[in-house]
């Protein structure tokens, strides 16, 4: 009886983490894209252009239809997950590393370092992110690496803010003073004693930012400023599919749906983690 109850409770708890499961599934799809995708995402077939979902030809099935060049939409959506997720992960890592370093240094060293760094953060935060991104891409040029750099450049201040506030709160705790009394220098105090203790909130921000980065990448690619063809990108697919929305709705709809699910799962997961951490306090 009680075993059944606890089993139900446990599965309820596992279910309440569905955003994590969905996100995990999408990440797996991205990792194993070459094996999962039924066709080569770049192979064109001019005889099978703009076909409906479920269209069959010579043993191959276009489950989600084909696009204007006869490429398989399903395969392109799966490979698009790769682009989206790798751009998002790399830009989160890069902006996170920069932002966390800046925020921790400002919060721990205080004084003029704090003034200079946090003023810089304020300046960056006062520029609308998407505008800054568009301007820098226009200067650097589009492409996979540049998109990551641009996203990192625009997003690090958010990590800096969070890391700064958290570090201020932790730096006065007695254990930090004890580690200094034991001879730990600034790098050791920051890395060994402060960072692990502020990792929770930073992880929440990183998860929420991941969703945002997916959207930003799609937005840039939609505008033609992101990753370049023939690389499959959801944003680029949306942009092309828009022209065919009346005749071939599937070209834009499925990448749009994938984008929606990925962003949704990241945001819900971030919120959920935030709740848990909040409760832990």
């Amino acid at each position: 009886m009680s075993a059944a109850v606890s089993l139900r409770a446990r599965s309820a708890r596992a279910l309440s983490w569905w955003p994590a499961w969905l996100l995990g599934l999408l990440v797996l799809a991205a990792i194993f894209a070459p094996w999962l995708a039924p066709m080569d995402p770049d192979r064109q077939n001019l005889l099978a252009r703009l076909k409906d979902p479920g269209f069959e030809t010579r043993g191959a099935t276009y489950w989600l239809g084909s696009d204007e060049l006869g490429r398989d939409v399903l395969s392109r959506v799966i490979h698009g997950a790769r682009v989206s997720i790798s751009v998002a992960v790399l830009s989160v890592l890069l902006s996170g590393a920069v932002g966390v370093a800046v925020g921790m240094l400002a919060g721990y060293l205080r004084g003029w370092v704090e003034t200079v760094l946090m003023r810089l953060v304020d300046i960056f935060l006062s520029i609308p992110a998407i505008l800054l991104a568009i301007i820098t891409v226009a200067v650097l040029g589009p492409g996979f690496v540049n998109v990551i750099l641009v996203l990192a450049l625009t997003r690090w201040p958010r990590y800096a803010r969070v890391a700064y506030g958290q570090t201020l709160a932790i730096a006065d705790r007695p254990f930090v003073r004890l580690s200094r009394a034991m001879g730990a220098g600034t790098p050791r105090v920051l890395w060994q004693h402060i960072l692990p203790n502020i990792a929770g909130p930073l992880l929440v921000v990183a998860t929420l930012e991941f969703g945002l980065m997916v959207l930003f990448e799609a937005g840039l690619s939609f505008l033609g400023l992101g990753v370049q063809p023939p690389m499959a990108s959801w944003g680029a697919m949306l942009s092309v599919g828009r022209n065919y929305i009346a005749t071939a709705w599937w070209i834009a709809t499925f990448p749009g749906l994938a984008l929606f699910l990925l962003v949704l799962s990241a945001n819900m997961l971030g919120d959920r983690m935030g709740d848990v951490i909040g409760k832990g306090r």
Binding site: L178, Q192, P196
Partner: peptide, 15 residues
């Protein structure tokens, strides 16, 4: 070397 008054909060909770 120095030791402090609050033994529990003077230790890093995650180490």
């Amino acid at each position: 070397a120095m030791i402090f008054q609050e033994p529990v909060s003077s230790l890093n909770p995650l180490m």
